[in-house]
Design a protein around this nucleic acid. Structure first.
Length: 482
DNA sequence: ATGTCC
């Protein structure tokens, strides 16, 4: 049985023996009853020592009594725990390229500047779809010193990704078999927070030993299993569309118009659980000025860093398996194997090298890997085309491109200002069938994808175009005014 | 993007 030792507790900076005994009793009690795991308990104790008041005020809180003790001791001057020294931001602002700066809001630029000032930052770039997020902007690429990793620069939906299947059927199948294709989507896709599936096609991923590697992964495993093959909410979709492949663009596929299946989703509750857990730990391990606090990093060689790396990579494989599950179920129902499948993460971290050979951790938060020859998918919106691209290996962009068109309007602004008729007219005009979705995903909330692609012509070559035709997204949220 | 455990 795992225990929290005095050595573990002394890393928190506690020297008083009586205090150490109290901490040990509470910590091991929580551990024994499996309320939290070791890393989580230590992170809470550390945060509580720095700022005990919220813990003392929490009714029924696990650390309430201990926090009251800590406050008393602090008042008596008997506990002199100093918070971890605050990391200083660099004074000078290193230059970073911004693609399509005319399409980028000031808030995203400001966030990227702060990220560049982290002591561990080595290089960065802002993609033309950039907009404000938590910590690093969406569309931000950040290379940090090898051996560091920033959970919030990976993003909350770890390994959110795209997957495209190309079927050897003409694109006009969408017009001749619209009801069949619609029904395939309705039967084989599952949307919404907490959505689960009853039947799975391939569960071999769950045989892997990594599922036993940490208590957190183990705790999230059953839900991950139930959510295999589901799509979530927000901008996630599964859609049929017309895929136009240019001559000589893909060696496996002659030029032509094909039936394509495109999906966008991530690692569901599994990745969200990992992101939440380790971003909190990172913020207690690395103290940063307020404006940079969400950019706290983990030391990759610490226990937490190793755990996050393992969990993030497992979430990556899980997100991939999720897409495969959806595509395989649909392909089997059609009794047809896809001629080609293309996929890529856009919320992830990779161990790569800068142009001069410096090893770094490259975080791409809402950015598509675009190394030389690397294939990727950049979607537009429910009514505008997405593109299959081949990376040019542009060093300045840290081998990256945008992950989509990027938002120009927040979800709340969309609900306030847009009318459903606007979407209906656009969809009718382009002969698009929409299943589910809501105002906050209207085509009007996105930047012009053609302008975004133009802004990154140095980063990727376009090799195929995908025009959405039958789009499924999560059902509209019920709101009071409805 | 997730889900109502610290």
């Amino acid at each position: 049985m795992e225990k929290i030792t005095n050595a573990d507790l002394s890393t928190l900076g506690i020297e008083d023996l009586d205090v150490l005994v109290s901490f040990s009793r509470v910590a091991n009690g929580l551990l024994k009853h499996q309320v939290m795991d070791k890393a989580q308990i230590l992170a809470n104790l550390e945060a509580m020592l720095v700022n005990p008041e919220p813990y003392a005020l929490k009714q029924g809180g696990k650390f309430k009594n201990l926090a009251e003790q800590v406050i008393q001791l602090q008042q008596q001057g008997k506990l002199t725990k100093q918070p971890r020294p605050e990391q200083k931001l660099k004074k000078e602002l290193a230059d970073f390229p911004v693609y399509g700066i005319e399409h980028i809001e000031a808030g995203a630029l400001a966030q990227m500047r702060i990220a560049m000032q982290l002591p561990v930052s080595r290089a960065g770039a802002l993609m033309p779809d950039a907009h404000q997020g938590y910590g690093l902007p969406i569309g931000g690429v950040l290379a940090t010193t090898a051996g560091t990793i920033i959970p919030y620069a990976v993003g909350v939906d770890i390994a959110c990704r795209m997957c495209l299947s190309l079927f050897e059927l003409p694109a006009d199948t969408i017009d001749t078999k619209v009801d069949d294709l619609k029904s395939l989507l309705l039967k084989n896709t599952h949307f919404g927070i907490g959505s689960e599936t009853k039947k799975h096609d391939d569960t071999s991923l769950f045989d892997r030993p990594e599922w036993q590697a940490t208590q957190l992964i183990n705790r999230l495993k059953d839900k991950a299993y139930r959510q295999l093959g589901t799509s979530g909410t927000g901008n996630h979709f599964v859609e049929w569309g017309e895929l136009t492949v240019q001559e000589g663009a893909l060696k496996e596929v002659p030029a032509g118009n094909y039936l394509g299946l495109l999906s966008h989703s991530g690692s569901r509750g599994f990745g969200a659980g990992i992101a939440d857990y380790y971003s909190k730990i990172a913020m207690t391990k690395t103290q940063l000025p307020k404006e940079a606090k969400h950019l706290a990093w983990l030391d990759l060689n610490s226990n937490e860093g190793q755990e996050y790396w393992l969990a993030m990579n497992l979430a990556g494989d899980y997100a991939s398996a999720n897409h495969h599950e959806i595509h395989n179920k649909i392909a089997k129902a059609m009794n047809l194997q896809p001629l080609l499948r293309i996929e890529n993460h856009h919320n992830f971290a990779w161990q790569e090298q800068l142009a001069d050979g410096t090893p770094v951790m490259v975080h791409r938060k809402g950015a598509t890997p675009a190394g030389k020859g690397v294939l990727g998918i950049i979607p537009g919106s429910m009514s505008t085309p997405g593109f299959v691209v081949r990376g040019k290996g542009n060093i300045k962009s840290i081998n990256s491109a945008s992950h989509g068109a990027g938002r120009v309007m927040s979800r709340s602004a969309a609900f306030k200002t847009l009318k459903r008729e606007l979407i209906t007219a656009e969809l009718h005009d382009k002969k698009i069938t929409l299943l589910g979705s809501d105002l906050d995903e209207a085509p009007q909330v996105y930047k012009n994808i053609h302008a975004v692609m133009e802004a990154q012509h140095d980063l990727v070559d376009v090799i195929a175009k995908f025009q959405p035709r039958i789009v499924r997204m999560a059902e509209a949220k019920e709101r009071p005014e409805d």
